[in-house]
Design a protein around this nucleic acid. Structure first.
Lengths: 214, 214
DNA sequence: GCTAAGATATTGTTCAACAATCCTCAATAG
DNA sequence: CTATTGAGGATTGTTGAACAATATCTTAGC
């Protein structure tokens, strides 16, 4: 796969951010980072633009770029958008291609398996995959892209979660039952369940953020 | 308002693209445009990144950037995404702040006035504002931003519409009746009407594109 | 007419310099 | 003591030129 230098730099920065090496709020100095990564300031700036597009960093004019800090208001907003996209997926479930339903099922069983092994980090990413698969039922590249950006932003919030287990465990079963509703064609109930599901998850995250001192 | 050079350059390019001065498919040469606009290649590239983010142009590695060409598949995809966002707005209408409902009403009457004056271009933008206002009922900055990007993309497709009047006229009345349903609190019916509305509009655009020879 | 090698043009990337802007912190006025 | 102002320093914004990498076009050979 042909990738430009800027794309490669953006990838390593993305890893550092999601890995916690660059915590939210950190300023990404052009000179220091450029020296560190061995690229010119101009190329680094191109990489910054890519990350801004993913909302992993924010750019303030004449101030530079900073790792995104998620406020409670942001998380609420993200969940509104999630609601829009995932609901769209559920409502399109009746006419969605078989492969997309397959992806939903796969994410559910993957999460269950990871849970039985106690790998809560893996449960977390399987959960994200499940929700991405839900939205993907809408069968739209733009919905998929928007959903991917939301998930990337959410990962920033997960960093502040104290116990991944306490957060993810209750949702494994709910994923299963939501998927079951879909397979049985009970779309109305699936939609209702999805709404309360997202409300509950949002509340958990906001509580965790409040405890973590903000 | 403080804007960087790149932002100003992006704005003029955006105007030229939406005004038809740079038709879809045109390559934006770095050297020629830079000379024309009096900015360096590096700054022009930053402007390009902004436009790529708005999907007004596409960037092909080692090939350059080109004004976006909308395929029928793109238009279909855009309408799926629109459906997701506007439906989300309608479903949140019950709890939306008063000011947001006001915006919906304002866009409807604005379109009606422009129609009575025969200014179909203006009817077109009022129509876009109406739909943006619908999505905005979701009361989410991210939904708003996504909707703005969609509208910008759609404007590219409108360029290929032969008769703005034939396309926009039938929808003025439908906008009014949809808004009326919302005010009466008949959200289910509003949602259903919105769905068929979008289907009809999509069909019209696809027909026009086919006629325009593609 | 087709393929392959070379020439040409364009983009990708780097570098160094200067301009514009923001932040810090001390000095000053009230 | 607080608030304001202003210089100084640090960082980003922008430029222009240069070279490397890649794609496209041209030409030679069959």
């Amino acid at each position: 796969m042909a990738r430009s230098t800027a794309q490669r730099v953006a990838a390593t920065l993305r890893d550092r951010i999601e890995g916690g090496g660059l915590p939210p709020g950190t300023q990404l100095s052009e000179e220091a980072l450029g020296r560190d990564l061995g690229v010119s300031r101009n190329t680094l700036r191109e990489a910054f633009r890519l990350l801004v597009h993913e909302s992993l960093v924010v750019h303030r004019l004449n101030r530079g770029v900073f790792v995104r800090v998620l406020e409670p208001a942001d998380v609420r907003d993200i969940y509104r958008m999630r609601g829009a996209l995932e609901t769209a997926g559920v409502r399109a479930a009746a006419t969605a291609p078989h492969a997309l339903h397959e992806a939903v099922r796969g994410a559910v069983t993957h999460a269950e398996q990871a849970a039985s092994e106690g790998d809560w980090q893996e449960v977390g990413s399987a959960d994200l995959r499940f929700h991405r698969a839900l939205a993907a039922l809408a069968d739209s590249a733009r919905v998929d892209a928007a959903m991917d950006r939301l998930m990337a932003e959410l990962r920033l919030a997960f960093h502040e979660m104290p116990s991944p287990r306490r957060f993810h465990e209750p949702f494994v079963a709910r994923n299963r039952s939501l998927a079951a509703l879909l397979e049985r064609g009970e779309y109305e109930r699936a939609e209702a369940e999805l709404t309360t599901y997202l409300d509950d998850a949002l509340r958990l995250i906001l509580d965790a953020m409040r405890e973590a001192g903000r």
